[in-house]
Amino acid sequence: MNIAVSADKPAPKDYASDQEIRWCPGCGDYAILKAVLKTLAEVEAKPENTVFVSGIGCAARFPYYISTYGFHTIHGRAPAVATGVKLANPDLDVWVVSGDGDALSIGGNHLLHLLRRNVDLQFLLFNNEIYGLTKGQYSPTSRTGTLSPSSPSGSVESPVSGTAFALGAGARFVARAIDTAQAHLLGVLKQAHGHRGASFVEIFQNCLVYNDGVHSAFTDRSVAADMQLLVEHGKPMLFGKERDKGLRLRPETLALEAVKIGEGGVGEEDILVHDQTNRALAGMLAAMQPPAMPVALGVLYRDPAPSYDSAVTARVEAGQERMQKGGISTDLSAIMRAGNTWTVKG
């Protein structure tokens, strides 16, 4: 069950547990698991210091398939459990794995606070726009009109965007990727792992059984080049098979538009360069939807700030240092004796 770490560079399989995987054949989760195992190997994660925390749902089974420490908790509450883990031991490398129902419906409140507090961990949102484990009901990311057992004539709700939510909550690292785009996903996961603070990654994941092809408008091989914009910090935001399309800012409407180089007087110099520290730009990138615009993938926003757990630890350590210096009354006996006391003589 437990792996022995050799002196050699670890391999992805070293991080796989001996448990039989219970996802449906063809589930996008397999691809994500593969990319995460690869990420762990590439960053040479210490198994004993790595913890996977999850809530409830198909995605939440993830920890059972990783050979590090793992905690499969309760629905929506993984961010809260993970926060407690980091408060007890900030040195642990924590990943939270969640689905769209777990993270944005029952656990929306916890995710909000995890991100605004900037707890140092990686948060992976597997978004397949459907409830899988409860057999196919519409989810908070399902598009209006989604047909499901609980919305037989089409859902009338408006969906939430995970990425826009994360930006709104004050996340300092917000990225997007596609389950089957392994190389890109691996790159994003490694950047998320390298970021100190809460790293939010929305992974567009396909549910073969209940919502097959829900992301095909931008994930299908036939449209991928034109409907995916892979952003990189400091590089012009180009896309299309010929990489002759790009994003331009319309100053008069403060909106992004997709343009083609060479058409309408557009030159390469007109194409916006991605600045991952620009929150306003990240918001606009997150809002782009096919078919009018490509879907922005990669690290949309990254602007590090001190993490919550490091700030709390610093406070506690500063307090203990004061105590050791003896400047203030400290141990419990002293606390209990502070204020008014009196002695009764025998």
């Binding site: 913890v51 925390v53 905690f71 908790t73 309760i74 509450r77 809260a80 459990v81 993970a82 926060t83 407690g84 883990v85 980091k86 408060l87 007890a88 031991n89 642990l92 916890h110």
Partner: peptide
């Protein structure tokens, strides 16, 4: 839940 997480992690 955070208290449970803390206990899990050894506090």
């Amino acid at each position: 839940c955070s208290a449970i997480g803390a206990s899990y992690a050894g506090a």
